[in-house]
């Protein structure tokens, strides 16, 4: 990343994008922290990180697509079984997006973190945990378990909450590895670990 294009603000943008996606604040039927704004922030952010992480811009069209879907859902709720197939596609895109984003960010963390700090490992674990949890929640065979056992439902909700907090922690922690004046040299091989 060049001094003319500091990386810290971009990471801030990514972090706030996820804040908007995870947090909802409804005034009546309207979410005033709309998800689509978060996705467009992510789309813009991953594009700006292309120089640093060459495979990241591959995610830009996915983020844009998710943003358009979120916008459509925000304007007119996309409910009903007619949306079964589109929702499946959206879920798959989302799983891939989160995984690859944190995969690449973990690689960036590995390059810039101080010795002894294991932020890259934390992000890799977050990446894997998120993917596995999303997959488990998508398996129809588990639906009766979720419906019949409220304890399992509470466990899942707790896990989701932990993941949200963990995600935001990792993003802001990665951002904080970069000084505000953009002076850090992050040049390194482009391949992720």
């Amino acid at each position: 990343m060049s001094p003319e294009r500091p990386i810290r603000p971009v990471l801030t943008q990514l972090a706030w994008g996820y804040v908007l996606i995870y947090l909802n604040f409804n005034l009546g039927p309207v979410d005033i922290l709309p998800d689509f704004v978060g996705w467009f922030l992510l789309a813009d952010g991953v594009g700006k990180l292309g120089e640093e992480l060459p495979s990241l811009p591959l995610l830009r069209p996915l983020a844009l697509g998710l943003g358009v879907w979120a916008l459509a859902d925000w304007l007119l709720p996309l409910e009903g079984q007619l949306f079964t197939v589109p929702l499946l596609i959206v879920r798959l895109v989302r799983v891939y997006f989160d995984f690859q984003l944190f995969h690449d960010l973990a690689g960036l963390a590995a390059r810039v973190q101080p010795p002894g700090r294991r932020l890259d490992r934390s992000m890799t674990q977050l990446r894997n945990t998120q993917a596995v949890l999303d997959t488990l929640l998508s398996l129809p065979v588990l639906y009766p378990v979720l419906l019949d056992y409220s304890a399992v439902t509470w466990l899942v909700l707790a896990a989701a909450l932990v993941l949200i907090v963990w995600t935001l922690y990792c993003l802001f922690a990665l951002r904080n590895l970069f000084p505000a004046d953009g002076s850090q040299d992050t040049s390194a091989p482009a391949d992720a670990p």
Binding site: S55, L88, F99, Q100, H103, N128, T135, S138, A192
Partner: peptide, 21 residues
């Protein structure tokens, strides 16, 4: 050489989500 590496887990997860549907 430019396919994102280390993506085996998510590839599997996507198949597991897709297959039942």
């Amino acid at each position: 050489k430019r396919y994102p590496r280390g993506m085996a887990l998510v590839s599997l997860c996507m198949v597991l989500i897709l297959a039942p549907a």
